[in-house]
Computed example of a mutant assay.
Amino acid sequence: MDDKKKQEELNSLIGKKELAKVGNWYPDLYSQMSYSIADLQKEKQAVFDEIKGLYESQGDLMVIEILKSIYLSFIDRFMDGNGNLGDADEEVSFTRRKLFDFAGDIYAKIEAASYLKSALGHFHRIRDLESHIELAKKGILL
């Protein structure tokens, strides 16, 4: 929504009487819509910042790493890629390098999931703020 259209919608609410009042969050429809628009912009920026942080921290390769599963990583690193039980009593040894690399792989996936969870959490707030705006347009004061 461009700034002119936002202002026109805000101006249409000046002095407008609400049809229903379902809470005590805002003093009037204009304030409800104005604060919600400002908060909506902040939430959208926060989503962008979170995704930007993921990119800056992990780069393009992180998308590929997220798509891999930890299980398949384990199969690749410790079961020679075939995932068969084979001789279940066979002893296997792991080098510290293999364990270190595997731990790094897991850490990268957890870090990516944390960034995405944080970014996606903003979408719930965005949906709520958009709802506040729509309710204000319909004359319902929160």
Rank of each mutant, 00 (worst) to 15 (best):
D101Y: 09
K52M: 07
V47P: 07
F48T: 10
D101E: 06
K98H: 03
G81L: 11
K44F: 05
F74V: 05
G59E: 07
L54M: 14
K42H: 13
R97Y: 02
S57Q: 14
A103I: 05
G104A: 08
Q45M: 10
Y71V: 00
I37E: 01
L72Y: 01
A46I: 04
Y35D: 15
L61K: 15
R77I: 03
N84R: 05
D89F: 08
R77F: 06
K98T: 00
D60I: 03
K42C: 08
V63M: 14
M33K: 14
N84F: 08
Y71R: 09
K68D: 06
E56L: 05
M79Q: 08
F74M: 09
V92L: 11
I66D: 06
M79F: 05
D89C: 06
D101A: 11
S57W: 02
Q45H: 05
L85V: 09
I37S: 02
S34N: 15
E90S: 12
V63G: 15
A103F: 11
L54H: 06
L54I: 06
D89V: 04
K42M: 13
A103C: 12
D80E: 15
Q58F: 09
V92T: 12
R97I: 01
A103E: 11
S34H: 12
F100Q: 13
R97P: 00
E56P: 01
S36L: 09
D39F: 14
I51T: 07
G53V: 11
R77M: 12
G86V: 03
G104I: 01
Y35A: 12
K42D: 08
D87A: 11
